[in-house]
């Protein structure tokens, strides 16, 4: 279901996440703590950010305004 407003929100969320990646919130220098399952901080936060990015891409894929603009009938696979 195309929804330009939600699509714009997706772009904003991605923009904010990208900025955060380069701040000490995600990549603090020489910091291991706090750990999660003994995973060092930048790793587990990095994994979390990656998953959120993919989830936002999923949401974006459902609401992108151009979803129904170029459909064809025959295809190579489903």
């Amino acid at each position: 279901m195309a929804n330009p407003r939600l699509w714009n929100y997706c772009k904003i969320i991605i923009g904010i996440l990208v900025v955060l990646i380069f701040t000490p919130l995600v990549t603090p220098a020489d910091q291991i703590e706090p750990t999660l399952l003994l995973m060092p901080y930048s790793l587990w936060v990095g994994i979390l950010v990656s998953i959120i990015l993919v989830l936002v891409t999923y949401l974006g894929s459902r609401v992108h305004p151009g979803l129904n603009t170029d459909q064809k009938t025959d295809e190579v696979d489903g």
Binding site: C10, I14, L17, V18, I21, V26, T27, S42, L43, G46, I47, V49, S50, I51, L53, V54, V56, T57, G60
Partner: peptide, 13 residues
């Protein structure tokens, strides 16, 4: 991980 996985996750968007 940040170098490749996070970058790839941004790339797919």
């Amino acid at each position: 991980w940040i170098f490749l996985a996070v970058s790839d996750a941004v790339m797919v968007f």
